[in-house]
Simulated scan of single mutants.
Amino acid sequence: MDGHLAVTSTGGVIGNADYLNHKRREYEKRRGQMQQTGTRSAHLTMKSLGGRFANWSEDYLHRVSKALVQEALAHDCTHIAFEKLKHIRNRISNASKFQQWAFRRIQEYTEYKAAE
């Protein structure tokens, strides 16, 4: 997929997986630094960072799903289909990099947005 979260049948590319992974790595790096510090303040900061990252990633996935639905509407598509991603970790190289991807979450968000 060359760094895209979604590629449409009309040739559109939506979302940036590399950006999502970069943000996740940055969060994990800061979280690791806070854990090493071990103070109460660091623990509270770590919780705050986790909440902010979770909110950011949920928002990002919502924006991706909204763009998928808008792409379908713009091309008068009657259906949105998703690739079967079962066992994807076995089919791609460097699977650990992708194991936290939210493929299912994007699909769920797209399903309810398309129904609206």
Rank of each mutant, 00 (worst) to 15 (best):
L49P: 03
A6N: 01
Y60W: 04
Q36T: 08
K97S: 13
E111K: 14
Q70D: 09
A74R: 12
R52Y: 06
L20Y: 04
K97D: 08
A67L: 09
Q107L: 07
L85I: 12
Q36W: 07
D76P: 02
S57R: 12
T78K: 10
T39A: 01
K66P: 00
L61F: 08
L85E: 12
K86W: 11
T37V: 12
A6T: 05
V64A: 04
T45E: 15
V7Y: 00
I106M: 02
R24W: 03
R91Q: 08
T37L: 14
C77F: 06
L20P: 02
R24S: 12
I14L: 07
N94I: 06
Y19K: 15
H75V: 04
K86T: 12
E111S: 09
S65T: 03
L61P: 00
N16M: 04
R63K: 15
N21L: 12
R24Q: 08
R30K: 13
K86F: 10
H22E: 13
H75E: 06
M46Y: 00
R63L: 09
G11S: 04
M46N: 10
K113F: 02
A115T: 05
H4G: 09
M46E: 14
I14M: 07
I106V: 14
L20Q: 09
R52T: 10
T8D: 10
E108M: 02
L68G: 01
T10S: 13
A74F: 07
Y112F: 05
L73E: 11
R89S: 10
A42P: 02
G11R: 00
G32R: 12
T8A: 04
G32S: 14
K47F: 01
V13E: 14
K29H: 15
